[in-house]
Design a protein around this nucleic acid. Structure first.
Lengths: 214, 214
DNA sequence: TCCGAAATGTTGTAATTACAACATACTTTC
DNA sequence: GAAAGTATGTTGTAATTACAACATTTCGGA
């Protein structure tokens, strides 16, 4: 198992290499690979493992019975997912998790946290708290992206956020057109159309998933 | 200060009355009252206090420069808010917090957590973790309510959630029409209109904020 | 390089929503 | 209890979006 990415993660901040190895053992760390498009978790699953993305990326999705397909979040290399369900035992998942590309996931069993000695537990809990708190802010950012009533406003809200994150007017986004549409809660064709108009209006330039804000 | 509500809260689970009093001192607990409609925090504020609703309720809102007004969450008596900003120092708030009705708020300074002795800190961190994790699930529930493309779908998604929470087909909701519209991200008049249609179609019955799913 | 599959772009029409304007009902205050 | 103010319901029109159908581009194998 490649522990370099893991030991640099927010969860193990403040732990040295030896401690990380001990923790990985205590938390019964397991690695698993998925092919692009594979389902990692299904809505309704009950889990107790925190998940870490070693390579690739996954999408958190809501798929309801009327065919509405919504992407709530994209989790990329070096980030965690399923914290909520790992830390609240018996809460069935309300979302699906899919491999957005070929990826490697490490599972960490949170039921074992109680058995750690107190000094390790304090540090781990503090790190977990930072992770869930940051995830909170991240989750609400989607609300800002879907808050504008019109498609153009949503696109701009999203692109602005990415631009600020990447600290540049030119950047790649992790979504293809269909995924961006599902994330912004609009029709794919309407999204394509609006992107064309925005280019004609000189607001942006884009080609595939590379964007530039003019 | 009325500590009975506080000591029964998720934050102080596992602490006895004496410990709660000690903690309230260590965390520099302060109480403040607000009139309905008052702004408790503004977007851009930097805070380090966890906030607890003793009486009344508050709304978490996003108000952008184009006049879009969106309600992200309603926090009622016995619940916490601003955890994310309290726990991540120097993160400026992205939302406004408003008094939804006359209310009493207790501020708890999270900068002081590091000074607690270890056994108390572990318990407090574990409780904070539960709070933020639950808040995570709660935040994503709004995504499910706004996922349907059409107004009727959003209304039903929301009413179903409330119905499940209250374990009854008949219940009150905490929003008036304008607020419900802002929460579901639709026009107020369209919402009113759709509610009328749904009553004519025999799906629901409602009067003011009392609803019944038929 | 060619083919087929998948992704993206374009267009037109039907359906839905936004918005404004107004009617009605309910509340609060004096 | 009347008046004023607020909340809710209704309606029509303009604007936007959904949806379907098809054109074009891109990308990976054969």
């Amino acid at each position: 198992m490649d522990i370099s990415v893991l030991s640099g993660s927010a969860l193990f901040r403040g732990f040295d290499e030896t401690e990380v190895n001990t923790l990985l053992g205590s938390l019964n760390a397991r690695e698993k690979r998925f092919r692009k498009g594979a389902m990692i978790f299904h809505s309704g699953d009950v889990i107790s493992t925190l998940c870490f993305v070693i390579t690739g990326s996954v999408t958190i999705e809501s798929n309801d019975m009327w065919g509405n397909h919504t992407i709530l979040n994209l989790v990329s290399k070096g980030q965690f997912f399923a914290e909520s369900y790992a830390l609240l035992p018996n809460e069935p998942m309300l979302v699906d998790v899919c491999a957005n590309e070929d990826c490697t996931i490490v599972y960490l069993d949170m039921k074992s946290v109680g058995r750690l000695d107190e000094s390790m537990r304090v540090k781990l809990l503090a790190n977990l708290l930072t992770i869930t708190t940051r995830k909170n802010l991240h989750l609400s950012s989607r609300s800002f992206h879907t808050a504008p009533r019109q498609v153009r406003g949503r696109i701009m809200a999203y692109l602005n956020t990415v631009s600020v994150q990447k600290n540049s007017r030119e950047f790649d986004i992790p979504f293809d057109r269909q995924q961006l549409a599902d994330y912004l809660n609009v029709e794919r064709s309407v999204l394509s159309n609006e992107l064309s108009k925005m280019q004609r209006d000189g607001l942006i330039r884009c080609r595939k998933n590379h964007f530039e804000i003019v």
